[in-house]
Nucleic acid binder design. Structure first.
Lengths: 134, 134
DNA sequence: AGTATACCCTATTTTTATTGTCAAGTAACA
DNA sequence: TGTTACTTGACAATAAAAATAGGGTATACT
């Protein structure tokens, strides 16, 4: 299991935000529904906000809502925001780490894996997920 | 970076074994070539042996060689032997962990990712890697 | 027989990252 | 003007990964 709780909680959270249809939803609501500590959820949600995927409304009846239409928010964006990277190795995400990439057979394997994950997550949007569950 | 050094070192090692063409190669040779501690490499290689991917020859001129033809050894087998699992979440590898899989949108995402990795690693054999680098 | 080589096994330590908790704020709005 | 809710930063607990250490056993070649 290589996805951290940050990503797992965060993905659930942004999906909750998405299905709330533009009405702000409070972290308290999400935290109690999914049994996550509020403090921890605050840290997680801050990542998604920093990367411009969600926006916040303060005060009573405030909360979080999507910063753009769900069809423009890719699962890949969400995972990269929360997890940082889903690359199986550093040499795949950081090209200058090793100068033998061209002749490195293991790098070839890792790149194939990374590409196949990208293929999945950068084709899938929050709109797709919403539609799927209706 | 979610693949452990176990997998990274181990994959390099079994590839070295594979390109040595049935002649046993010692761990000392591999360890010094790739700058890995011998003790650590021993632990790693033991996993591959336990799972029947390589075999050992003791004594002088001994070492490790493939237990079967390279076209019958899949990269998926190697990674599963070394890493245990490449599933992004537990709920993907262990079905009885959560009873809401059918209606769980995040499970859907994780399963898609897992399937795409399987697609890559269970199509790739050590023969393919050898051929690629010739 | 003796010795060097190389595999074999288990325990322990070090290091690092994850997973949270806690506390003290700031902003918005009814 | 008080309540709701977001914001920030420090830090502790835990678990896993990464590596070290040190003993042993089998085998080939003098």
């Amino acid at each position: 299991m290589w996805l951290s709780t940050k990503t797992r909680y965060g993905l659930k959270a942004i999906y909750e935000i998405a299905i709330n249809n533009n009405k702000p939803i409070s972290l308290n609501t999400i935290a109690s529904k999914h049994d996550i500590s509020l403090s921890y959820l605050e840290q997680i949600i801050a990542l998604l906000k920093k990367d411009g995927l969600i926006k916040s409304t303060r005060g009573p009846h405030g909360g979080y809502s999507l910063a753009k239409p769900p069809e423009n928010i890719y699962v890949g964006d969400i995972i990269r925001s929360l997890e940082g990277s889903y690359a199986p190795t550093e040499c795949v995400e950081q090209n200058d780490l090793c100068d033998q990439q061209a002749s490195c057979v293991t790098h070839y394997v890792y790149k194939k894996i990374n590409d196949s994950i990208t293929e999945v997550v950068d084709r899938m949007t929050l709109r797709d997920l919403k539609d799927k569950m209706l």
